[in-house]
Computed example of a mutant assay.
Amino acid sequence: MKHTQLAFLIALSLGLAACGGSSDDTPVNVDTGVGVDDGTEDTGDETQGSTDEPNDEGTIYGPFSTGSTAEPVAVYFDLDTQSQITLTEEEAAVNTQWDIGFQRTNVFLNTHQEAPVSLYFTGNNADFFDDEGNAIADSFLNATADSELDDYLTVTASDIPDDAEFVSDSETQVIGTTFYNYDTTTHVVSAADDVYYIVSSDDNYTKFHVTDIVTEGYGMGELTLNVMHQSVLDGQTEFAEAVAVSANLVGCTEAAYIDFDLQQTVTASDDWDISIPCSDGAGEFAINLADDASVLRTDAQTYAGVDDAAAAFYGFSSETVSAYAISENNWYYYDSSSHLLYSQFGVYLIKAGDTVFKMQITSYYDEAGTSGNYSFRSDALTAE
């Protein structure tokens, strides 16, 4: 493992993996046959795929290829012109023309416009879930773009909520301040021992939570974790019994390091998984991941172990991640039998500038079954 602290996450995370790779076919508007930019040439703000005549409501755009898991490609789409804009990630970070982007399973909004693009979920697919909120698998597996067209067409400008209901993308941290509680009245810091984290590192998995924090001035004098290690390399399929690991930070002059394989503190020159930074002779209230580690926040009961074959679908990420507005009501259903992603055919309202658009993702695969190829509907909503 590398010993440096986790670098700040790039603006777009790579997302969950799914079956298949990239396609070499030029994507087209599946209703009109009009070719669209396939992302192979850097054309800056140039747009392709739009026509002089407006498309019929419910026209499906795509498929737009977002590459493979190993080589992801971001697709940037301008809702005003209903066309793709070819940009590098660096260009997209300052470009204000695109409204919505796609990269593997992630769907993200442009937060660089004067008013960040924002999203609202209409809740149109409530019948795809039972009374307890559990997904009804057959509803997703049997739904098609044709069967869910009416759901899309019935959404009109009258369904646009107040601006306060729209949510933009933001950045958040998986661990961040969630491992401790702070009482603003007594100013006492205590361990949030009901919050668990699973770290993927060195081809193994480790579930841990903080069980005790001893303060030292304005910092941490000692931090104690319960560490439950799963050595995939040794054939383990579940987390082992918890082992207590403590880091003494009183009078520290450098960060403390913990190796989950050894389940003990180590030095900066060793292979470590997490570190606790030091400042003014005490530990800072932070837990940093090694560069090559990823993390998932969970609870005590949900995971007894990690299925290594399906680990790509668990949602592991870097410590600092983009919190996508669409994730609260995500666009896909994952079928654990086929390992395929099915659209939930949710209808989203997207506010870009003064215009509100509706959008429905219809597929994540092209005709050859290659994943990462988005097709979707999108139309501007105007008062009737």
Score class of each variant (00 low, 15 high):
195 V>G: 00
291 D>T: 13
73 V>P: 00
224 T>H: 03
339 H>G: 00
78 D>W: 05
73 V>R: 12
246 S>T: 12
138 D>W: 06
98 W>H: 04
381 L>M: 00
242 A>N: 10
207 K>Q: 11
193 D>V: 04
177 T>P: 02
72 P>F: 02
267 T>V: 11
21 G>L: 00
266 V>L: 08
157 A>N: 11
346 G>L: 03
71 E>A: 12
140 F>C: 07
327 S>T: 11
292 D>R: 07
143 A>N: 13
60 I>L: 05
274 I>Y: 03
179 F>E: 03
68 S>T: 06
248 N>T: 12
107 V>F: 04
237 T>H: 05
128 F>M: 10
301 Q>R: 08
130 D>N: 14
137 A>K: 15
342 Y>T: 06
79 L>W: 14
297 R>E: 08
52 D>W: 15
59 T>F: 04
277 P>C: 02
60 I>D: 10
278 C>S: 07
161 P>D: 04
116 P>I: 08
347 V>S: 08
259 D>C: 09
215 T>H: 02
280 D>W: 11
73 V>M: 01
106 N>Y: 02
322 S>Y: 00
355 T>S: 14
175 I>F: 06
243 V>M: 07
205 Y>Q: 03
67 G>F: 04
14 L>C: 10
330 N>D: 15
154 T>H: 10
170 S>R: 13
332 Y>N: 04
74 A>N: 09
203 D>T: 02
338 S>P: 01
211 T>P: 00
75 V>I: 13
118 S>E: 08
76 Y>R: 03
320 T>R: 10
98 W>L: 01
328 E>R: 06
115 A>F: 08
351 K>Y: 04
151 D>R: 15
30 V>K: 09
377 R>Q: 14
180 Y>D: 11
319 E>P: 02
72 P>N: 01
153 L>G: 01
250 V>E: 04
28 V>C: 03
14 L>V: 12
205 Y>M: 06
46 E>N: 15
267 T>L: 14
300 A>Q: 10
122 T>H: 06
92 A>Q: 11
283 G>E: 10
214 V>K: 05
212 D>A: 14
291 D>Y: 06
367 E>C: 03
149 L>S: 06
203 D>E: 03
125 N>R: 15
316 F>D: 07
